[in-house]
Simulated scan of single mutants.
Amino acid sequence: MMVLCPFDGEAQWRLFVNFTPGVSIVAPAPLWVHQQEHSSLYQWAHYRSEPFEAPIYYSIRIGYTHVDKGWEIEMNHLKIYLQNTSDDLSRFSVSHGYNQLMVNRLLMKGSWVRKYGVGVVVAHPESTVRGLMYHESGGLFGAGYHIAGPVVQYGWSRDFITRSVVYLTASLMVSGAYARVPVVDGHADVPVVALHLQVGVGGQYRLRP
Rank of each mutant, 00 (worst) to 15 (best):
L106A: 05
L107I: 12
M108T: 06
M108L: 14
M108A: 07
K109C: 07
K109N: 13
G110I: 03
S111E: 12
W112S: 05
W112I: 05
W112C: 01
W112L: 12
W112P: 00
V113N: 04
R114T: 12
R114N: 09
R114A: 15
K115V: 10
Y116Q: 10
G117P: 02
V118R: 14
V118P: 01
V118Y: 15
V118Q: 11
V120S: 09
V120R: 03
V120K: 05
V120H: 03
V120D: 02
V121L: 04
V122G: 00
V122A: 10
V122R: 02
A123Q: 05
A123P: 01
H124Q: 05
P125C: 08
E126R: 12
S127Y: 00
T128P: 05
T128G: 12
T128H: 06
T128C: 14
T128E: 15
V129T: 07
V129R: 01
R130N: 15
R130A: 09
G131I: 03
G131C: 02
G131L: 02
L132Y: 15
L132G: 01
M133I: 13
M133D: 15
Y134M: 13
Y134S: 09
Y134D: 11
Y134K: 11
H135I: 14
H135C: 09
H135V: 15
E136C: 08
E136L: 06
S137N: 13
G138R: 06
G139P: 01
G139N: 05
G139Y: 00
L140F: 13
F141R: 09
F141H: 11
F141V: 09
G142V: 07
G142L: 07
A143Y: 04
G144D: 01
Y145Q: 07
Y145G: 03
Y145L: 11
Y145E: 08
Y145A: 10
H146S: 10
H146Y: 15
I147D: 06
I147A: 13
A148T: 03
G149F: 08
G149V: 07
G149N: 04
P150H: 09
P150Q: 10
P150D: 08
V151A: 13
V151W: 01
V151P: 01
V151T: 14
V151L: 02
V151H: 05
V152T: 13
V152D: 04
V152P: 02
Q153W: 00
Q153L: 11
Q153G: 14
Q153N: 15
Q153S: 15
Y154D: 03
Y154P: 00
G155D: 09
G155P: 07
G155S: 09
W156L: 14
W156C: 04
W156S: 10
S157P: 01
S157I: 04
S157A: 10
S157G: 15
S157Q: 12
S157V: 02
F160Y: 08
F160I: 01
